[in-house]
Nucleic acid binder design. Structure first.
Length: 484
RNA sequence: GCCUCAGUAGCUCAGUUGGUUAGAGCGGCGGACUGUUAAUCCGUAGGUCCAAGGUUCAAGUCCUUGCUGAGGCGCCA
């Protein structure tokens, strides 16, 4: 199996390889004219054309060169006579590494629905669309680490299993080693978690933020990048029960530093993909255009995928306060015509339709909304100084809203004042005794600090233009689905 | 959790006001083809119309329930 040449290296620079012999291995994308094999080995978007003189090969062997069969070819690299490619491989030796009986293999060389692909997640990565998505997903993960490392941040691993259920970000998955058929009971008849593995109830984490704050107040600048779990019964194209989240947390940052970081980070990530994955992006761009041809004009994207990404990195994100957002919405046409389903009222959270209006209609670019009413936000967000003319107190929270997918980042300056935090926890019924350590961070060497959470899959969704979040993670976990 | 829509060949879909033997394209299979780019051309097989009840002389088509999927909403990242 040695001496394999990767197709990417042949296609990117073949000048020194012409006339030489090469061994390639990959999966058949097409076998045309009993003569031309389009071979893809996953290293890049494009295929290598393998030319077969069929008289030289056994007919039974060539029969097995079917869609997505895996083959090994040895031959000579030459300039192509055809128009579609510059270089091609003239086969001298051909070996079937893995057959794919076309009578039984579910994938077909044609457009198949996203739903069908999802049910065949073990094969869908072999398609153009999904291989492009997952190459970009990798690139994005790498860019995240590169960005933070280059800026002096430390990567921190926060626990997956958490003993606190006070993180306040949603329903949690219980983790237990107890025998569910024979649950031990206390005298009062409740489940006796003293007999469980950790001797207390535990769950899968919904956020690493609270622990990341520990890191920020010691190492200064930290970030987490790991899986998170929400047991919400969410059935939408932008929610998963298991997803990956990036959470930077920085000491001495206020809400404005936090927004600057969020904007710079988003732009860096998008630029990285524009610079390093042009072929994959171009394919996804074309794919989207093909899809939108059948849509009525008003449902199409205003720009192609690549143009959208360039537009986002070339323009400043709009920054407004929650109060300004409410005013804009109340003066908007859809509001005056009664088109909004939900009320726009200071103190009520902005709904998806409101965010969409701000991002897609009013500003037509990413928007950062800050200073939300305190009563609709989490306990750890820093209480702002009272403002003249506002109906209630606000917190230093910010959301970054992107076109199409809505909230991609949610963050805040954290409440560093011990007494204020204790009062907020009391008001919002957060158990102080469980978060004793979180409170002690404010008692001993506390500091102003801020951070945010970025939904990894939502960013992949935005950059690849995929409509459903289940198609940017290899094995999506959603209500009623944990196959693969 | 709520609302809406859908489920017909391997895949993507059509199927009229309920009416004889359920169709197409692609894919498969058989054949032709030495410069193809989702190759092309000829031929061919392939159906528990999601499931269970019901209405009717007659149900793919109408009704009820269930299952599965999608879109939207809520929750959020």
């Amino acid at each position: 199996m040695s001496k394999r040449t990767e197709i990417k290296s042949i296609l990117t620079d073949f000048s020194g390889l012409l006339g030489q012999e090469a061994t390639v291995m990959g999966w058949v994308r097409a076998f045309r004219s009993n003569r031309f094999i389009a071979l893809n080995d996953g290293t890049c978007m494009n295929n290598l054309q393998v030319v077969v003189n069929f008289e030289q090969f056994d007919e039974a062997l060539l029969k097995k060169v079917s869609f997505h069969a895996c083959i090994r070819v040895v031959g000579q690299l030459v300039e192509s006579q055809g128009a579609g490619q510059a270089v091609e491989l003239i086969a001298r030796e051909l070996e079937i590494l893995g057959e794919a009986n076309p009578e039984l293999y579910p994938m077909q060389p044609k457009a198949q629905s996203m739903e069908f692909m999802r049910e065949h997640a073990h094969f869908r990565m072999r398609t153009n669309t999904f291989s492009a998505v997952f190459r970009i997903r990798h690139g994005l993960a790498y860019a995240i680490h590169k960005y933070f490392n280059d800026q002096g941040y430390y990567y921190m691993h926060t626990p997956i299993i958490t003993g606190s259920d006070a993180e306040g970000a949603g329903e949690m998955f219980r983790v237990t080693a107890l025998d569910l058929d024979k649950l031990p009971r206390t005298e009062e008849g409740k489940i006796d978690f003293k007999q469980d593995f950790f001797e207390k109830p535990t769950n899968l984490t919904v956020s690493g933020q609270l622990q990341a704050e520990i890191g920020a107040l010691a190492l200064g600048k930290v970030y987490t990048f790991g899986p998170t779990f929400r047991a919400e019964n969410s059935n939408t194209s932008r929610h998963l029960a298991e997803f990956w989240m990036i959470e930077p947390e920085v000491a001495f940052f206020d809400i404005f530093d936090d927004m600057n970081l969020a904007e710079d980070f988003c732009k860096y990530l998008i630029n990285y993909i524009l610079d390093n994955y042009p072929d994959d992006l171009a394919f996804l761009d074309q794919r989207l255009q093909g899809q939108e041809k059948n849509l009525p004009q008003d449902q199409r994207r205003p720009m192609g995928l690549t143009d959208t990404l360039r537009f986002v990195v070339d323009n400043d994100f709009e920054r407004i306060t929650y109060t300004e957002a409410v005013n804009i919405l109340r003066n908007s046409k859809p509001y005056k015509k009664g088109k909004f389903e939900y009320p726009v009222e200071w103190g009520k959270d902005l709904q998806a339709e409101h965010e969409r209006y701000l991002v897609e209609k009013h500003f037509q670019k990413p928007v950062i909304v800050r200073n939300y009413p305190a009563n609709i936000k989490a306990f750890y967000m820093r209480l702002n100084e009272p403002e003249e003319g506002l109906p209630g107190p606000t917190v230093a929270a910010m959301d970054v809203l992107f076109p199409g997918i809505g909230e991609v980042i949610g963050g805040s300056q954290r409440e560093e004042r011990h007494d204020v935090l204790v009062q907020r926890m009391k008001d919002m019924n957060v158990a102080e005794e469980e978060l004793w350590w979180y409170l002690e961070l404010r008692k001993f060497g506390g500091a102003p600090h801020a951070g945010f959470g970025l939904g990894f899959e939502r960013m992949v969704q935005f950059i690849t233009g995929m409509g459903n979040i289940r198609d940017v993670i290899a094995f999506p976990r959603t209500p009623g689905n944990a196959e693969f």
